[in-house]
Amino acid sequence: MNEIKTHAEFSPHESKRNFLKYILSGGLFALAGSILYPILAYLNPPKQGEVEISSVKAGKLNEIEKDSGMMVKFGTKPVILIRTANDELRAFSATCTHLDCTVQYKKEMGVIWCACHNGKYDLNGRNVSGPPPRPLDEYRVIVQGEEILISKKV
């Protein structure tokens, strides 16, 4: 660039030369931008920071009452977290094993219930009545202080 400048002084077409120079340097800036932008965007960590989710924060202990259930998004799968009447925390896959509906906790009956075909699971995830062919997959619940964590069973 330096050299170009030195020689430019001798040019009889100063304005034309300057115009070219602006185009070239403007272009180079734009080029640098269009290369750097994707790279910088790439470097910015995505929302889901890891390839595969191994555990999620389900919430605080005081957010879930005794004898109730709560839905937690575990990656792309729903998980149902249950706090039983005896104050035990359990988590199961919330996908009904019959036809993939989402199950819920039924307080009156004390079971995990699927609204689609009245399938019922006990609080160990075992299918006890209705069409579900097999139990719900269980997840591990870890309590750290006030925080409830759910992770895959190994």
């Binding site: 994707p38 790279i39 965007a41 790439y42 910015n44 995505p46 929302k47 889901q48 390839v51 595969e52």
Partner: peptide, 16 residues
């Protein structure tokens, strides 16, 4: 899975 992750979740990962 990580390549899949790069291709779908990371911005411009598909491009890189």
């Amino acid at each position: 899975e990580s390549i899949q992750f790069i291709m779908s979740k990371v911005e411009f990962g598909w491009l890189i």
